[in-house]
Design a binder for these strands. Structure first.
Lengths: 191, 191, 191, 191
DNA sequence: AATGAATGAGCGTTCATTCAT
DNA sequence: AATGAATGAACGCTCATTCAT
């Protein structure tokens, strides 16, 4: 077998795996982890159940890989930011960035919240969660400390919680939720 | 059968029904609607599955009745408030009240959020949701209009979203979350 | 519900459980543990798969209960024998008894041997096996010691092995195997 | 392609086939025919599943070829013996030879017994079994006839059965079983 | 009012086998 | 000669729901 053919195999495998994961994410978000069946996912992805188990060890493994892939990419993003030079403009940028992510990946965030409140599935994100939260809040704590506000830690956690809440409301009703006005209010209140 | 005996039967029925609903709420919150089985609920409630189906038409009906009962009691609470006389002190009171509710019924709110993000289960709350949200936000919109802020509607919805987000974070980690400091910050920012 | 009705429930349960176990034994013997499917057993027993899982925790539990029930009844039998008074006539009796058991329960012994040689299923008998072998050989060792033969332990184990081998050959071909003549030869050689 | 190259291909093919069969025998013996998967065998043999199906028509065919190859080699062995000159020393030799075979190929004999007691798999050995048993017992019947014992046929079948039983016990517990003493006892009792 | 035996559809998963490359 | 992606039927098992008692 030529190297070229081998490379094609690998490429096909990667593409198909990514496609299955994208399909599974959609269905998990819509039906929740327990409400989604492997058969549904396989059917919508246009593959047999057997093949799905060639790519993923189990339904849980499929979920885990989806979660890890996305959370890891976010953790990387925040690592690149420089806490030192983070100023009021960056905070506005962060808030905008948060909603860009959600607009880009609404399925993922819906799934993410559903896992948060579902202890049986919590284990899938448990391992990554502290790392993810820390990456997100570290910069903010530093920022509020430099500004000399009363409770910098509480401020940072509050902003995190606020973004969660606004995101949740936006996900539930993207059209009816006055996102732009709310972003302005947020920047005023938290800068 | 004497009327007195009939009344006793009715009372027993009501008590047992309430007990099953309380048990089911606990298990639904812990395992999610799909992760909980009717057998689990019946066993923990100390009744047979058959009897459970005597009280509730289906597992879905059981969930629906839990949701409706709790949301209705909240809607009633907000109706009693007078929007006209709502001032800055009442806003602090509202924020405190919100967390009192969650502390009192953490199971319910966990279940509530899990249903919010699970479209397949959304139908169970869909009917009550607008009524619930309106009851909650009407007072705030009136309040912000009287204060003459820029976007009174957005302000009200933002505060609703903020309470959702803070509640979610508090539910997920009641001990580690700095609730008291955050309540102070909230009152400062939203009064 | 009257005590009589309750008793009937229990009786029905016991009878049905015994019936399922008898059916399962037949199918396990014929197809081996792995070759038999729960569906087959349920169908032949005339019950639904679901009901079978009401009676038994798993396919393995079903097998285990079959094995334990039969082996326990044999261990009890041997306990009743008195090693002290065991003489040449008793040895003839033991040999006859061995084949009476096999004639009575050929399915069980077929299953038993198939489990012996199938490490994956060995765990099901492992717990009971030493107890069973000891019950069977203890009497023989005592007997051969009193007779003053060269290797009493080896004699006892040899007789055990011989009975295994003869049983196996008899099970495989009950009609063609000259069991009566062989019993005579055995008694001559091992008394 | 030169004849020499063709021959090399053939040799490679034969060697690989033998290697797959040896690997399969090990796994069949360890996990039983049904408990072993083709994937396991291919992986342990270091070939792809596809290639395995190039050498063998099916999993059953693989088993059949293993059984036939080994049984045929034994039938040949017994054919070479001369029934006419078979005396008491030869009988001792036969008993020793039996255990040499088992020590050499314990995997095969374990698999063999497991197939004997599994009617669904019996078809794989059915064709060869009479030939195999006859080859084994013919010499013994002649021997016992010449000695003028009561039931020469039963004597021969008894010795066959005894060897089965002793072999089974030895396979199950090679270290704990007093094989040497038992061989002595066997020779005394059956010469 | 209360039981629990009973069902059947569907679940997650495995695996012998095929076939394009 | 050799690969491994792909299939589909069957597996062990669960569970909401029903119903005779």
């Amino acid at each position: 077998m030529s190297p070229r053919t081998q490379k094609q195999f690998k490429e096909i495998r990667e593409e198909k795996k990514a496609m299955i994961m994208a399909t599974a994410l959609e269905i998990f978000a819509e039906k929740s982890f327990l409400g989604a069946s492997v058969s549904m996912i396989a059917k919508k992805a246009g593959v047999s159940k057997g093949l799905l188990y060639n790519y993923f060890e189990s339904k849980e493994d499929l979920l885990q890989q989806i979660i890890f892939q996305t959370l890891d990419s976010f953790i990387e993003l925040f690592d690149e930011s420089k806490a030192e030079s983070f100023d009021e403009n960056d905070l506005a940028g962060l808030i905008n960035f948060n909603f860009d992510l959600i607009k880009k990946d609404p399925h993922f965030w819906k799934l993410y919240v559903s896992l948060l409140v579902q202890p049986a599935a919590f284990k899938f994100i448990e391992a990554k969660l502290p790392e993810f939260i820390e990456a997100f809040t570290k910069i903010l704590v530093t920022y509020y400390q430099k500004k000399g506000v009363k409770y910098p830690e509480a401020q940072a956690r509050l902003l995190g919680a606020v973004l969660d809440g606004v995101s949740l409301n936006y996900i539930l009703d993207p059209k009816g939720f006055p996102l732009e006005e709310i972003k302005q209010l947020l920047i005023e209140k938290f800068k």
